[in-house]
Design a protein around this nucleic acid. Sequence first.
DNA 1: ATTTATGCAAATCGTTTGCAAACCT
DNA 2: AGGTTTGCAAACGATTTGCATAAAT
Lengths: 144, 144
Amino acid sequence: MVEDLHPAIAARLDGDGQRYTSGRRRLVEALVGAGRPLTAAEVLTEGALAQSSAYRNLAVLEAAGVVHRVAGSDEFARFELAEDLTDHHHHHLICTTCGAVTDFTVPDGLERAVDALALAVTATSGFHADHHRIDLYGRCAACA
Amino acid sequence: MVEDLHPAIAARLDGDGQRYTSGRRRLVEALVGAGRPLTAAEVLTEGALAQSSAYRNLAVLEAAGVVHRVAGSDEFARFELAEDLTDHHHHHLICTTCGAVTDFTVPDGLERAVDALALAVTATSGFHADHHRIDLYGRCAACA
DNA sequence: ATTTATGCAAATCGTTTGCAAACCT
DNA sequence: AGGTTTGCAAACGATTTGCATAAAT
């Protein structure tokens, strides 16, 4: 699926009336190479684009469903590729000291239990759930 | 336990070398009355204190373990009373359209499964987990 | 040729900070 | 009095926007 990644992204952008420019591609490749959510500052450094272009393109990619915004414990927005592009459903370990965010996966049974809970909440309340988050907070190896 | 809330808060502040001033108490009462996480703007309006005092006191209360900071889907920081003061362990429903955050609880079995997962992660990785988060994202009743 | 993307610099806005006056003990 | 807290106004920093140039179709 990784070999089909860029065509899939191009298709998604096209469906949103947007082009897959070289700057956007560099930005995506920075995210692919990282394997964890990156801050805007990391993305613009790795992708070698201007600050305004990085933010504008992250917004375009987010609107097209290519990139997903992740909130951590610090003041920096972080971005990762949408899970349906990477086929890698995961959650996050968030360091409350330095703000670092890393990926991890949880057992299938737990995922199913949370999905069932989301359905129950949607059925019994006015809130329509469509996505969940199971994160662990603590100290990363570097901050322990 | 609600009748012991303010003495407990005063003790926690005192342990941190801080006083429980009237402004801090108004701020706490705004959070008690809300029953959901409040933004800094909501806190300073309800507590009728200056913006700088609201932010400074929220920081003091957070450092003393009285208040806990909650990240939502928008750009506003939100604050709630620490769970060990309210004895109300809960999670959040987060509206991806308007950013509203409301409380909800999950079944005991699911809580225990996530606690067990946190222990397993701590035992097998360099990450030391001490807190978890199970949130549902979607549309609130007003935005549906 | 016309539309869209880029980069620079300036603006925006939530949050933080300096400082003098008010408060507590 | 001595140290702390408050409020105002100014500063800060991540993100956004205006505008002129460059690229894509």
